[in-house]
Write a protein that binds this DNA or RNA. Sequence first.
DNA 1: TATTGTATTTACGTTAACGTCAACGTTAGT
DNA 2: ACTAACGTTGACGTTAACGTAAATACAATA
Lengths: 127, 127
Amino acid sequence: MSATQHQRRYSISELAAEFDVTTRTLRFYEEKGLLTPERRGRVRYFSAADRVRLRLILRGRRLGLTLEQSAEIIDLYREPEGSKRQLNKLLATLAERRAHLEQQAEDINVTLHELAAVERKCRKALK
Amino acid sequence: MSATQHQRRYSISELAAEFDVTTRTLRFYEEKGLLTPERRGRVRYFSAADRVRLRLILRGRRLGLTLEQSAEIIDLYREPEGSKRQLNKLLATLAERRAHLEQQAEDINVTLHELAAVERKCRKALK
DNA sequence: TATTGTATTTACGTTAACGTCAACGTTAGT
DNA sequence: ACTAACGTTGACGTTAACGTAAATACAATA
């Protein structure tokens, strides 16, 4: 099925260091069901899939999303399945998310322009 | 100096309704020093300047900023003044903010593309 | 064997950004 | 005078997203 499977696993501190978060954060995300590391004994080992999910979670965090919202988005990434009704609901959710993101993009644009204006004034004042 | 001065004032519920926030929120923002309504007796009356600040705060909120961060940004909008050292520090702050915003913009772009891919799959599955 | 390093669970603490009463005052209309 | 609508000041409650500390386990190493 799949090509060369890299069965690479990550210890909690490894993953924490790579993404610059604490181990507490990773355990917390597991507690919330966002990460599902394998256990060897009591010790956690995170998979490549966990790593991807973590990346998505942190991206959401940078955008000011709650964990629940990030979880919802990650959920969207699964193969779209289900009844016609379910698929339509999924489309609606996607539209909502997009609207949010576009609003944010607009906010960013406006702010960047305003900050640029401040910067010009500032440079002018420096001369 | 200034042109026709609209000395329009806003009651707390007026402003709350316009921006779709609660009065509690506005009082909270005042408490935090982000809004400084005039008082007639005990009653608050918000100025056009307050209205602008509120707009900025809410924009920041949509971007996931804390009130403190929004306050900092609003602060940047005052006339750039002070020593050369102060101006340089201001420039540094501006650069920081811009970096953040550009990171967010990038995150949004990536996410939008990913969601678009999901949407395509979804529409395909609907046929 | 003792220490160091890394991991675990449990559990209480913290901060931001409000929500939610409670008790009360003022003004306009009936 | 009574009610309704709108305002006020406390002050305690709530939720998310971790921080932090305590007690414990296990492995490698000096």
